[in-house]
């Protein structure tokens, strides 16, 4: 090959750049993890570093004392993610199926409704007003589940396109002629054939719920809603108020001595605890995550 030298150069360059990018992507996480295991006094004197002169587990010991609040936060995250994803996914699938029944009276109204919701929204303040003053969801669990995240036009379109491509019209027609009702067709034919898209959209929705903090920011007040704080909201609250954990534990009736709280390293420890499950689970869902992103791109 004449060009092998230049081709090799491209390959080397590609590897070097991608390695550099990977390091850039990872190093803040490594810093965070090492910082969380640093001795608090050392962290204050030397700053967060990759090579602290003294390590310590004090931050984690303190977090275990605060488990009442953190454990609760985890529980809320899991509840919200499970319910939100399950209900939202079902709702999306059912609605998308209705869009596929093209001779349904009112079919066009449903399609146009989805389309308009993509083009125009009332803005943040109008949504806030409707949810808090008309639907009254402030300081309830619905505040974390309902606004914005349950269903969106984008997922409906992805799902409907998948239904159209993977479930053949002929099979549907013959099932109808054989007298199968629409509910049965949906539950026993369309859904089983659509497991890949259900998994993909479900995963994206679950990540959305797991990572959400804006709904809590808008619809949970610190006084009335902190019992519903998810792990993300605890992190957010701690950004404003590092004493939050202790004060919240006190509210739950647990006396905590805050005088020697290792605040500098504890921040990093709780952030690490928050991302740990995601990092552990990531290798297992990584394939679907990549697929979810590229599937969405096809129909941008």
């Amino acid at each position: 090959m004449i060009n092998s030298a230049s081709d090799k150069a491209v390959k080397v360059l590609a590897n070097v750049c991608l390695t550099f990018l990977s390091i850039c992507a990872l190093f803040p996480f490594v810093l965070l993890i090492i910082a969380s295991f640093t001795e608090n006094g050392v962290a204050i004197a030397e700053g967060y570093s990759f090579t602290p002169s003294k390590l310590s587990l004090a931050a984690y010991e303190y977090l275990i004392q605060e488990w009442a609040t953190i454990g609760r936060g985890y529980l809320m995250t899991i509840i919200v993610t499970t319910i939100g994803t399950a209900v939202g996914l079902m709702m999306t699938a059912m609605f998308s199926y209705a869009l596929m029944v093209s001779d349904l009276p009112g079919h066009n109204i449903l399609t146009v409704m989805v389309l308009i919701s993509m083009l125009f929204n009332g803005g943040i303040v109008a949504s806030y007003f409707i949810y808090s003053n008309v639907m009254h969801i402030k300081d309830t669990i619905f505040a974390l589940i309902v606004p914005g995240l349950m269903m969106n036009a984008f997922n409906i379109i992805l799902m409907r396109n998948f239904f159209k491509d993977s479930v053949s019209k002929e099979i549907l027609e013959s099932a109808r002629i054989d007298g199968a009702g629409e509910l049965r067709i949906f539950a026993q034919m369309v859904l089983p054939l659509s497991v890949p898209i259900l998994a993909t959209i479900g995963l994206l929705q679950a990540i959305g719920y797991w990572n959400d903090w804006t709904n809590g920011l808008y619809y949970l007040t610190k006084r009335g809603g902190s019992a519903y704080y998810t792990i993300q909201l605890i992190l957010n609250q701690m950004n404003e108020d590092i004493q939050f954990l202790a004060s919240n534990s006190a509210k739950l009736g647990i006396a905590v001595d805050t005088s020697d709280m290792p605040t500098t390293t504890m921040r990093m420890a709780i952030a690490f605890i928050a991302i740990l499950p995601v990092l552990i689970a990531y290798p297992f869902f990584q394939k679907y995550f990549v697929k979810g992103i590229s599937v969405g791109a096809v129909k941008g």
Partner: peptide, 13 residues
């Protein structure tokens, strides 16, 4: 859901 989440806020304008 579309009515509550998308259309009522449009009138909330």
């Amino acid at each position: 859901y579309l009515i509550i989440n998308n259309y009522m806020p449009m009138f909330g304008i």
